[in-house]
Simulated scan of single mutants.
Amino acid sequence: MSKLRLSLLSILEAIVKIDRYTSEYKSAVEFYHEERDFDATMMQFVIIGEMISKLDDTFKDKYSDIPWQKIKDFRNIVAHNYFGIDADEIWEIITTKIKPLKKDIESILTKI
């Protein structure tokens, strides 16, 4: 299996875990107060950012409609400013950005 495919599959697996860890919650506050699920979700965001850093620039340029750098930058915020994370911002990302990213990654995987 290629390094590219492995990285994309790792991103997809992290997204699936985020969905599993967050699917029962109805609000940012409810989610934030469940430490285990919140912490596990934050780790998956770190993994997504790490896998994106393994993708080469040519690949990212080919799929430039995906905000690779923004996602990677978010990983840095999670990893280095963990206690300053805004639960509402995290919840917004989970509820509006994760599913489209999953679709994009799945689509790319069918092409490579």
Rank of each mutant, 00 (worst) to 15 (best):
residue 49 G to N: 05
residue 39 D to K: 13
residue 48 I to V: 12
residue 59 F to W: 04
residue 50 E to Y: 05
residue 7 S to F: 06
residue 83 F to C: 01
residue 25 Y to K: 01
residue 46 V to D: 14
residue 105 I to T: 02
residue 68 W to I: 04
residue 98 I to W: 03
residue 44 Q to F: 04
residue 61 D to A: 07
residue 112 I to P: 13
residue 49 G to M: 03
residue 6 L to A: 12
residue 4 L to D: 09
residue 33 H to I: 01
residue 37 D to E: 11
residue 38 F to K: 15
residue 61 D to K: 12
residue 14 A to H: 11
residue 25 Y to D: 09
residue 77 I to F: 04
residue 62 K to T: 05
residue 62 K to G: 03
residue 92 E to F: 12
residue 54 K to C: 03
residue 81 N to W: 01
residue 80 H to F: 04
residue 98 I to M: 13
residue 112 I to E: 15
residue 47 I to Q: 08
residue 15 I to T: 06
residue 36 R to Q: 10
residue 79 A to K: 14
residue 96 T to E: 11
residue 3 K to W: 03
residue 23 S to Q: 15
residue 29 V to D: 15
residue 20 R to E: 15
residue 45 F to G: 04
residue 62 K to S: 08
residue 110 T to A: 10
residue 3 K to L: 13
residue 92 E to C: 14
residue 50 E to G: 04
residue 46 V to N: 12
residue 102 K to I: 00
residue 55 L to W: 01
residue 72 K to V: 08
residue 42 M to R: 02
residue 13 E to C: 01
residue 70 K to I: 06
residue 106 E to I: 00
residue 106 E to K: 15
residue 33 H to Y: 10
residue 66 I to T: 07
residue 96 T to R: 14
residue 70 K to V: 07
residue 28 A to Q: 04
residue 105 I to R: 06
residue 14 A to M: 09
residue 15 I to Q: 14
residue 35 E to S: 05
residue 23 S to R: 14
residue 73 D to L: 07
residue 58 T to V: 09
residue 46 V to M: 15
residue 67 P to I: 03
residue 60 K to E: 04
